[in-house]
């Protein structure tokens, strides 16, 4: 790690001072950042990659790259955003290597047209959307949600994870993925519609009373 002059932070949060100290030479403080972010990165990795080992690689490579490139961090965004930008890049490189189709589309055209008519047949909001959340929770449902997320094409999956799980704003997600905010919104909406169809199917066939 080289000691470059540390720029003043344009965006300051609870990580800023920590990052500045690490870059200034207190390398062991990187542990604090790892404790803070490894769990969420692991969740992100497990939802991005079906394979557990891939998720672990994603976390390790992201943290390794973050540490190595920390002196280049300009404090123009939050550290967390910068970290996730690295994670997304690691993921993309990996998928390119595996020759996975990143440009795959969601077959949503029909789905969107069907939308009002289909729900019209449901006399009221279905139970699965009405019951208290705790009444629905089960291991099986968790597995279903994971399957549904994995089955999204990558460009939709990453938007859904950053927006709905990591809770980045539309603007932040757009900057992170180098997309327009409009693009982020469209992909997010489609990803959610797709997941809803999958969950609907599950509740219709897999559960009673819906």
């Amino acid at each position: 790690m080289k000691n470059n002059p540390i720029p003043a932070a344009a965006v300051a949060d609870e990580d800023t001072a920590l990052v500045q100290r690490i870059v200034a030479g207190e390398r062991e403080l990187f542990r604090v950042l790892v404790e803070r972010y490894a769990p969420r990165l692991y969740t992100f990795g497990r939802r991005m990659c079906r394979n557990e080992a891939d998720a672990e690689d994603l976390v390790q490579e992201t943290l390794f790259n973050a540490f190595r490139h920390l002196p280049e961090f300009r404090f123009e965004s939050r550290f967390k955003n910068w970290l996730y930008r690295i994670a997304v890049n690691v993921c993309r490189k990996r998928h390119r290597r595996l020759r996975q189709a990143a440009e795959e589309e969601l077959p949503l055209e029909d789905l969107e047209k069907r939308l009002p008519e289909e729900t019209a047949r449901t006399a009221a909001v279905p139970l699965w959307a009405r019951l208290p959340l705790e009444r629905l929770l089960s291991e099986e449902l968790i597995a279903q949600v994971h399957e549904a997320i994995w089955s999204l094409p990558e460009k939709y999956r990453v938007v859904l994870l950053l927006r709905d799980i990591e809770e980045f704003s539309t603007e932040e997600t757009a900057r992170l993925l180098r997309l327009t905010p409009g693009n982020v919104k469209v992909r997010l909406h489609r990803a959610r519609l797709y997941l809803r169809e999958r969950l609907k199917g599950y509740f219709r066939h897999g559960m009673q009373g819906t």
């Binding site: 692991y42 969740t43 497990r46 939802r47 959340l133 929770l137 449902l141 709905d164 969950l199």
Partner: peptide, 12 residues
């Protein structure tokens, strides 16, 4: 509800 389920089921 879909968004809520997603959020709830994600952490690992």
């Amino acid at each position: 509800r879909t968004i809520a389920l997603c959020r709830w089921a994600a952490p690992q």
